[in-house]
């Protein structure tokens, strides 16, 4: 054969290579590939787990934020209700106070009117008594003595006033 080609040696080389290829496949290629596939599966599983956990956390977060916003609106509602109630109560108190004040004023006015009437009535009776006494004196005695008595009394009161000063 040209170039010293020898079919027997070619077959020997083929046989040798087949042994090498089989050994490499079973000893190195397959176990390493298996390990790498298992590792890939492991990381995929981890990724899926973390993805589901993330989704769960996202859902919880959304739920909590929804709850928080609901609580906020509820708080706002309660606050406005409380303010409203407070306003109404204040209005009521003011109204009551005003009514009470009006009643007090009215009562005071009535009392004052009654007192005035009473005083006026008392003063009229006194005047009438004085007029009666004066008329009696005029009718019964001299008016001179009365006049002198009046002057004496006035003088006496002036002296007392000066002494006090």
């Amino acid at each position: 054969m040209p170039l010293n080609i020898d079919w027997q040696q070619i077959l020997l080389h083929l046989f040798n290579f087949c042994i090498l290829a089989l050994a490499l496949y079973f000893l190195l290629y397959k176990p390493v590939k298996k390990f790498m596939a298992e590792r890939t599966a492991h990381y995929k599983e981890e990724a899926a787990k973390s993805e589901s956990l993330r989704a769960e956390a996202e859902a919880l977060k959304a739920e909590y934020s929804e709850k928080l916003s609901a609580v906020d609106s509820e708080l706002e509602l309660k606050r406005s209700e409380a303010l409203h109630e407070l306003h109404a109560y204040r209005e009521k108190l003011v109204g009551e106070a005003e009514a009470e004040a009006d009643a007090i004023v009215e009562k005071a006015k009535k009392d004052a009117s009654r007192e005035r009437k009473k005083i006026i009535d008392g003063a009229g009776k006194e005047i009438a008594d004085m007029v009666g006494a004066a008329a009696e004196k005029i009718v019964l005695g001299s008016t001179r003595n009365a006049y002198e008595d009046f002057l004496n009394a006035a003088e006496k009161s002036i002296e007392e006033e000066n002494e006090l000063r």
Binding site: Q9, L12, N16, F17, I19, L20, L24, L27, L28, P31
Partner: peptide, 19 residues
């Protein structure tokens, strides 16, 4: 061919040790 045999021995022994 002897080189090929020696190569096979070296590689197979190495692969076995690694395995």
């Amino acid at each position: 061919f002897i080189s090929a045999l020696i190569t096979t021995v070296i590689v197979v022994v190495f692969a076995a040790v690694v395995r």
